[in-house]
Structures are given as structure tokens and as C-alpha cells.
Design a protein around this nucleic acid. Structure first.
Lengths: 200, 200
DNA sequence: CCATAGTTGTACTAAATAGTACAATGTTTG
DNA sequence: CAAACATTGTACTATTTAGTACAACTATGG
């Protein structure tokens, strides 16, 4: 095994961009080749099949998000960060003219019953993100800043569902107003569960 | 213009089923023909192009939901109805082994930039549903059952985003636990905005 | 230098895809 | 009945699609 060349990465980045933009099923391998300025022999060499390319794309996406190199951030430490978490997605969608939803949601929704391996990868990524959010709420609760009756995991799922639904609605409407409203309500609910800490 | 035959409806129902199950782009016209036991000449005759079939499917879906013949119900009158609104989607997904998300979300997410007409239809349907939910909250507020500072439209968007995101997550995970958690949090938030009415 | 592994270009195939052509049915109604 | 129209069956085409075959190139290490 040697150091991976640039060609492979170029193909993955092109694939991810197209998968995200127009969905997995609406993206042909030839489109990926054209965008990445590569040939079919390289595709066969590095990924063998389309599922292989999807796999590599999910792996790449996961690595980018986990390492903090993506637009979104799961380094959530403060109450401001959780508001910012929603806002980053809204800002991102505005930057791309509301033409895109969440890449994971788009790709995940496009997978069929005959692709259980790929769906497992999506699922593992989902669990990681959920864990990141849940851990934040659990830590705030341990610090006495979140009501004892609040459920960290349920709050994480709540946030994640709003993000996914909000992004999808934004893409369909080509307007983020519904997402913004939903995020504002979510933030209000979270605030209502917070407990004032006596001193700093 | 004469009374529409059964063939057209059979094709639409087959198309909608396949679009919902595997997405628009993963569904070929031949698949629709096979499932509906029809031929290509009928397809050409009734819909001309694939976009024509998508259009008819969206129209049909919209009509079904608006007339209350679908699994979901937008006849929301009481506070129990709004909890039931979430629950119906969860129950539906359980009944289909968590293999499907919201048909509107699935189709809407599959539309490309070259299909603005179809996206407008999705959008109009979306606005209708949002209006149904918003009207409910506005009516409860007018009846003094919802806090004055609550925003009916924002609450509608909040509910809709959770439903869309919840269904998408359920399909991706093949488990409705995240959706259930999110819906429970949403219900808790809504309950916190309710105002106790003195007498019956 | 040369052997080997890694990489790339060109050409190809078999299947699936959307859409068309057109003749042959029915079905309604004047 | 017969004209007009609605419906359907069969056959076809041009394009796109995923994937393969194979030869040629490049780099590198012994």
C-alpha cells in the first residue's frame, strides 16, 4: 500500500458534490468523471463499482465532519454553540441559494434496500452526531445548567430532526423561513429547560 | 373531454408508490408500466413524459391528502389531534417497516433545478399543510388556550420540520426512536405554551 | 538497468432508459 | 350505422448507463 494519489480524492470530492447537489440516483459515473477530469479506468481502479464510490464518499464526508473541516461543527460546548449549530446550517443553505439539503440526508434517502452496507455507514455517522449533541446536553445537566427532568438523548434527537427537516423544507421551498422559525422554537424550548446557575 | 378511465389512475398509483418507495430518479417508466400492468402507449397517451407523470402523481397525492383519504390527517381540531398528527406518521412508518419517509419530502428532494414547475407544486402543497397547522394554533390562541406570545405560523413550521426530519431519520435508521423522541419533545414544548382555561 | 507495482488512455459491450411511430382496436354519439 | 374520438398493442430508435478489457505509461526500488 502506498500513498494515495490526488486522482482518487478528486473523484470523491466530485462525487460528493454531485450526490449532494442532485442526489445519488440522478448522478451518473460519467458526470463524476467529467467534473473530476478523470477517466473510467481510474474509476474502475479505485472504486470498482458505483456503490464503491458511494462508500468512499460517505467515508470522506464522515471524516471531514468529524475532523471539523466541514461547514458544520459538532464542537458544541456552550449554549450559544447549540444556537449556532442550527444557524450554521441556515447560513450554509443561504450560501448555496437554498439548492441543497443535508448531504447525509440526501444520500441516505437515496439508498435502496439492496444497499444495507451503505445504509449502515449512514447510520453510524448519524449515531456519532447524535452522541455529540447528547453528550453536550448531558454535560450541561451534570453541571446543573439543565433541568433534571430533561432527557439529553431525546433533546439531541429533537435538534437533529429539526435540522434535517428544516434543511429539507428549505431546499424544497428555496427559502429558509420555515427552518428559521423551527430553529427559533427549538431554541425557545431549550432555553425553557435551562436552569439559572447562582454564580458564575 | 370524457370520463377518465381506470388505466390512468392505476399508472399514477403505481408511480406514486414507486416514487415514494425508491425515489423519483431510481424509478423507471418501465417499472411503473410493469407494476400497473399497462403499456408504453398508454403512458405516452396520458402523460407524454416522465415529468408529466410526476406532475400527475403530485396532483393525485395532494388531492388524497386534502380530501382526507390518506394515512395522514390535517383535520386538526384539538390538542390531542396535534399529538395524534405526529403519531400517525410514526405508526405509518412502523407499518411499512420504516422503509419509507414522507412522499412529499422524498419526491421534493429528488427534483432538480430543471423542474421548477414540479417544485412549485410541491411548494404549494407544503404551504397548504403549513396553513392547516398554523390555523389550528391561531384558533387555539384566539380561544385563549395558547399563550399570547406564541406564534402560530412558527409553531406550524416547527411541527412540520420535526415531522419531515423525523420521518427521514426513521427511514435512514430503520427505527423510529429518534422521531418518537423528537415528537415527545415537541409535544412537551407545545404543552408548555398552553394556557389553562378557567371552566369547561 | 530492469522488474514490479501503481496508474492512466482508448475502446468496447450489454443492458436499461426515455420517448416515438403507427396500426388496430374499442366506444360513444349524431 | 358511421364518423369521430379515445384507448391500446407492438415494434422501434437513439442515448445513456454501468462496467470490462487491455495495452501503455510512469515511478520506484533492488
Amino acid at each position: 500500500m502506498t500513498a494515495k494519489p490526488d486522482t482518487r480524492t478528486r473523484m470523491i470530492e466530485a462525487a460528493l458534490d454531485l450526490f449532494h447537489r442532485q442526489g445519488v440516483n440522478a448522478t451518473s459515473i460519467d458526470e463524476v468523471l467529467e467534473l473530476s477530469h478523470t477517466g473510467k479506468s481510474q474509476f474502475s481502479h479505485y472504486f470498482k463499482t458505483k456503490d464503491g464510490l458511494i462508500h468512499a464518499s460517505l467515508e470522506y464526508l464522515s471524516k471531514m465532519v468529524r475532523s471539523g473541516e466541514s461547514d458544520s461543527s459538532y464542537e458544541i460546548k456552550t449554549w450559544e454553540d447549540i444556537e449556532g449549530w442550527f444557524q450554521k446550517y441556515i447560513d450554509y443553505q443561504r450560501a448555496v441559494n437554498f439548492e441543497r439539503s443535508c448531504p447525509l440526508g440526501t444520500i441516505g434517502n437515496d439508498l435502496g434496500n439492496d444497499q444495507p452496507m451503505l445504509r449502515m455507514e449512514v447510520r453510524l455517522f448519524l449515531e456519532w452526531a447524535r452522541g455529540k449533541l447528547a453528550r453536550f446536553f448531558a454535560e450541561r445537566q451534570a453541571a446543573g445548567e439543565l433541568a433534571l427532568q430533561a432527557q439529553p438523548e431525546a433533546l439531541a434527537d429533537f435538534c437533529f430532526a429539526i435540522m434535517q427537516g428544516g434543511m429539507l423544507l428549505t431546499k424544497m421551498k428555496r427559502d429558509s423561513d420555515m427552518f428559521e422559525n423551527a430553529a427559533a422554537q427549538a431554541n425557545a424550548y431549550i432555553k425553557s429547560l435551562r436552569v439559572a446557575v447562582p454564580h458564575a
